[in-house]
Design a protein around this nucleic acid. Structure first.
Lengths: 335, 335
DNA sequence: TTGTAAGCGTTATCAT
DNA sequence: ATGATAACGCTTACAA
């Protein structure tokens, strides 16, 4: 009933070795005799010892924690299953790593200063950045702080940052091609935020595909990855281009909104207007009709980002060429 | 371009005061002359000084971090918008508190040991527990560790734990009453996991209301708060009780699944079967028909939990009577 | 292989 | 109000 945590000295005493030997035994056991190792292991178990992170950090100059940064200025996007997938992926990628996962969310309507300052202050050893926007200044902040970081999704700047991504252009091509294959010739798109690489790239893939087929690429409405945004955007898109027979929504959440708008206008899906989404993070199977979409391997992507960060932290040579995952088309009933 | 973080000594030197004075000035400024205070503030700003958390922790014996614990054994529930709301609420509740938010997720198929050990090891000053299950042993672990903690949702054990909750019984009564008011007399329910208080209480509220009206309360299928689970549960429920004219689903995610099953069976909603859900976390507005549901103020609840934890950490007297929020009925088109 | 000893950057105690 | 000085618990030369 001592209440107080046992210290390394307690362990050393219990194991009848010096504090340094105990320390060595606990940290991998270099230059420790089998007997000493066993005695220390025993003492640790008996005492329920757990190293004091603060003391360790103070001398190792590492914090043994990494930040998951979500610099999302828009509250709504947190409803996005994407974030949940990212959290799950990072968490899973950390198994056995004994690193704390510190969550760094932007407060609503807050500038980029706080996050940048925090990251520059040496409170974490590294960072994974998700939902990165052009104006969030995270790239420069991370570079200045020289903090090991991996972006989930291609960053904007020069090629100095590590990142992992899904091939959004290819995914959008898949979606658009699917619409063309089902006979559509007048295809519009509802984009993600165009200050995010995912938004930009998916628009690009849509445009490239249409042009290659000699089709018009002027039916575009910028949106925000939310369902209600998607519904509103669909109204504007259909008002401006009543002849549309296909729509590519750059996220399933937006596609859900599009579906509502189409229903309320009495347009049949896919008979009147075919629809393809993007993400496949649980929404697509629950819409009616089920959404044809592009599978975005978020968890795999994020686990890869975590692995890359761990490698960086371990000082391993990490290739600067990013890891890019290939999305696949998921057939539904909407196209 | 020194790269290294400035230390308190640097600040003291820059401000021409002793290290102790600098420290006092930085920590609230007790017994510091205005001149000294100004000089230190200046130096801090010029140097971009940020205290070394590890060194501070070592002496204060606080870690300045709290854990958000999600001991969810079931991967799927992480798709639940509930978790997103919790994260947002805790994060928002932490504004200005200068506390790190450490995310502690259960790994899939993992026992409760790791989380309990972590919490007992003094790595965090306190914890907020969400998505608590009966067998996750968190209550005893937290009690043993004497770690300040606040549960989001009533815990199982005796009244020793602090918690914040929504009145799930009242919410379920609201939902059930709504079905009765619309003329339904044969009402079933699809429950949440019955090893979770939210699952238990919502079942209770449904049952109480039916009994008070002299209606049968035997049409029950236990489920898991997921959409696909809800769809399957609805099939079983309707097979066993073909005469049902109303269903209370204990979460919107499950209600979404129920809706699919009803559609596929050609049952009209609400004409043939009326449906009320629970949560109103963004799903309800996107179904067709829009779901009638019970608003669960997750963000407010979670912010209150965070505030309570902060008070506990500050040593403030926190009443042991829990804060209970009242849910409200949200009209949709499904009942 | 082991132990001794010197810090890591901060707060807290206690004179002044 | 201020400034020495002693912890806090750990890792890591360096010596043995």
């Amino acid at each position: 009933m001592s209440g107080a945590q046992p210290t390394l000295d307690d362990v050393a005493r219990e194991a009848s070795v010096s504090r340094s030997t105990a320390s060595r035994a606990i940290n991998g056991g270099e230059r420790v005799s089998p007997e000493a190792q066993a005695a220390v292991d025993d003492a640790v178990a008996r005492l329920g010892y757990s190293p004091n992170r603060a003391a360790r950090s103070l001398v190792t100059r590492r914090t043994d924690s990494i930040a998951l940064v979500v610099p999302e200025p828009d509250t709504l996007v947190l409803t996005d299953p994407f974030l949940t997938g990212v959290i799950r992926g990072v968490s899973d990628g950390l198994v056995g790593a004994d690193l704390q996962l510190v969550l760094l969310l932007n407060r609503v309507d807050e500038g980029p200063g706080r996050l940048a300052r925090y990251l520059a202050s040496g409170h974490v050893d590294g960072a994974i950045v998700a939902s990165h926007h052009r104006r969030d200044q995270l790239e420069s902040a991370l570079a200045r702080a020289q903090l090991p970081a991996v972006f989930v999704g291609r960053p904007f700047g020069d090629a100095t940052h590590h990142y992992v991504d899904v091939d959004n252009v290819a995914g959008a091509r898949l979606a658009t091609q699917r619409l063309i294959d089902s006979g559509r010739r007048r295809i519009g798109t509802i984009t993600g935020p165009l200050d995010m690489p995912a938004g930009i790239d998916r628009l690009q893939g849509w445009r490239d595909t249409l042009r290659e087929h000699g089709l018009r690429d002027d039916a575009v409405v910028e949106c925000d990855f939310t369902a209600s945004g998607g519904a509103a955007a669909a109204s504007r898109l259909l008002d401006a281009h009543p002849d549309l027979d296909g729509i590519f929504a750059a996220s399933d959440l937006m596609a859900e909104g599009v579906l509502r708008t189409l229903h309320s206008r009495g347009a049949r899906v896919p008979d009147d207007v075919a629809l393809v989404g993007f993400d496949d993070l649980g929404i697509a199977q629950h819409t009616s009709p089920r959404l044809t979409t592009v599978h975005n391997p978020v968890i795999r992507t994020t686990m890869a980002a975590t692995a890359a960060l761990l490698a960086l932290l371990a000082g391993a040579p990490v290739p600067t060429t990013p890891q890019i995952f290939t999305p696949t088309l998921i057939e539904g009933e909407s196209a």
